[in-house]
Design a protein around this nucleic acid. Structure first.
Lengths: 373, 373
DNA sequence: CTGTTAGCGCCTTCAA
DNA sequence: TTGAAGGCGCTAACAG
């Protein structure tokens, strides 16, 4: 039988992966040297030992243990991204771009989903435990939950220890945030709405303490008001920025007889002539709900969305909406999180809540769901 | 000025987070004890020292260093999931369920996107470096690329060192895989197709070496053939399971005059009466493409999808498709990856390519895109 | 029950 | 250029 002094002599089921020591031994150099050629940045090793190490490494199929490296150098190779629902196209798009942007800089991203404030707080706690380079929070609801204070403390602590927290579309907490011009976009779409001849909208908003929703709503309401349109409060509903809840909200209105002309109908019996959804998925849910009630969206009732998720072009009628640069948002968040600590200057850091506007004037995407009438 | 012997005496910008040692010191116990109450599973510590440690921990805002723990106990608290595109609703759904299922077991998931074989291989290499509990690969294309052998080696090595690799919807490599009854589903939808009176389909498939695509195609073709339908080869296209390419493929056919009746049209000038898409996003892309060419999907041309992604219910006409239990697939993959190594028995492990069927008879979801004619 | 003592795999001064 | 040695933060026997 062959003799070998390699590791793992015993008949092994799970032979543990090769370690740096193994490589060093096989290459006949010190572990330090091995480390230098395999991982160290500025290599200053003689060429022949370099080769020997490399050979040993490939032969042993060596893969550095990322965790051990992280522990040793005290800095992790990853960032974490928190979203409330990856299957939501909006978050999916943001996630995609975050992962891509991070990947280009060689850092991996751990995605966590946290559907509510409690879960979010817990996720943050767990995330902090991995000492990531940064934490990007793309959560949108529950901002003012009681957990908020706790969350802020946790993140502040995290920052104090050298971490970087960034929010996406949320400026309620004193941390850097990537944001877009919600109100500007809202005004633009509302103006289009008015100009197109609509006067009796149902409105699907998000939670009132949800900043994006609030800003968008403010923009819309202001333009509407100035155009002499008073929105019937009975057809303003909280769709929680979710497709399902948006759908449900419209169904509810239909059941109450608010939508189609008639006795109980909104706007003094005239019913609605449109749905203004403060994000796309609610708008899409609304379309389906309208159809379920025999109302043809885009013909009898106009629809607007907000966000321009990929699928807004594929629904029918295709959704007229406000374009949000989803990909750029993710990129910006990653840049912010990975930026050199010293770079931004004490001023910004001190401010704490630096704002990164990805775009100053959101474009509106004119499609079919809001025909001129 | 207050004197304290706590850590970090110097005026500190980034005061490093509290360590277990700090907590132990402040609580006046040994680091071992502190470890036991803070992390150790079966705690056997006196109550008062338990309290002291807890107090110290909260006061110091202690968070265990997950990496250090991982290194020390030689096992990581996470799994990695590889997909080719999170913004694709199919992958998004799978990801969502994987994250959820993993979360319930206290393990976090690192998501990587790898759009092609090379990126995938690299991702796997990087993943292995973090010694995760398992790797779930939900990639679907490029299965037979030259990197395949490399990938297999890498994963085999990973398994040998105690890791667990699982594929989703892919059984081309000798690893455990979660799969569904593609062919059964395909036969079902094809039968519905025939029974509904369609005879001249365009077909949108995926790569030929993509297993799911192949199986679905086989099922469809067989049923069609037996019904006496011969598919015009000019209207079979590779949409690569992507919305964009599906869209492009139909546009291409339209440009070639294949779709609408006429001289160049498929099926001896009769044109197509339907599109069979082997997954939903291609079906949805096809609808939009048809509309762009003045053809009303669901009226002039019937459409079928495969997968039942959330948005297939929201497009119009809503997509008749084969329901795939996306959530269960993710759950199954996680279960498999997290299963006790000894549990499954040597038999399964030896086989290497254990199959987990999530569902034996895929339901077909009857909606509006394939009306009887 | 608790403290002591080895490691885990790697990086990084510090001498040589 | 290289090796020896200490340390990162934590866990896990092993004695007390």
């Amino acid at each position: 039988m062959a003799q070998h002094t390699d590791k793992d002599d015993r008949a092994d089921k799970p032979s543990s992966p090769a370690t740096l020591m193994d490589v060093a031994a096989k290459a006949g150099v010190s572990i330090a040297t091995a480390s230098r050629v395999l991982n160290g940045s500025t290599r200053k090793v003689r060429n022949d030992s370099y080769v020997k190490v490399m050979e040993a490494a490939t032969k042993l199929n060596y893969r550095p243990n990322a965790y051990a490296q992280a522990v040793a150098k005290g800095t992790a190779p990853n960032i974490v991204l928190l979203v409330s629902d990856i299957s939501d196209p909006y978050f999916a798009s943001v996630s995609q771009s975050v992962v891509k942007a991070a990947g280009e800089q060689g850092v991996s991203v751990t995605i966590g989903v946290a559907a509510n404030a409690k879960a979010e707080l817990e996720s943050v706690r767990k995330s902090v435990a991995t000492r990531p380079r940064g934490i990007i929070i793309s959560e949108s609801e529950y901002i003012d939950a009681p957990e908020r204070a706790e969350l802020e403390r946790e993140l502040r602590q995290y920052e104090a220890s050298g971490g970087r927290a960034v929010f996406i579309l949320n400026r309620n907490l004193p941390f850097p945030a990537v944001d877009v011009a919600n109100e500007v976009g809202a005004r633009a779409i509302a103006k289009l709405f008015v100009d197109s001849g609509y006067t009796r909208p149902a409105i699907l908003k998000g939670d009132d303490n949800h900043r994006s929703s609030k800003e968008r709503l403010a923009g819309v309401m202001d333009v509407l008001g100035k155009a002499g349109i008073t929105v019937d409060p009975r057809v303003i509903a909280n769709g929680r920025f979710s497709r399902t809840e948006g759908y449900a909200a419209i169904m509810q209105m239909a059941r109450a007889g608010l939508l189609a002309p008639g006795g109980d109908a909104a706007y003094d019996g005239a019913g609605i002539d449109s749905v203004i959804a403060l994000n796309d998925v609610m708008g899409i849910g609304a379309m389906t709900a309208l159809r379920a009630n025999g109302i043809e969206p885009g013909r009898e009732v106009g629809i607007t969305g907000f966000g321009d998720i990929p699928y807004s072009a594929d629904v029918h009628p295709s959704l007229t909406t406000v374009h949000l640069p989803l990909a750029e948002i993710g990129q910006a968040a990653v840049d912010c999180v990975l930026a050199d600590r010293d770079d931004a200057g004490a001023a910004d850091s001190a401010a704490g809540n630096r704002l990164i506007f990805v775009q100053s004037a959101p474009d509106i995407v004119l499609r079919e769901s809001l025909p001129r009438r």
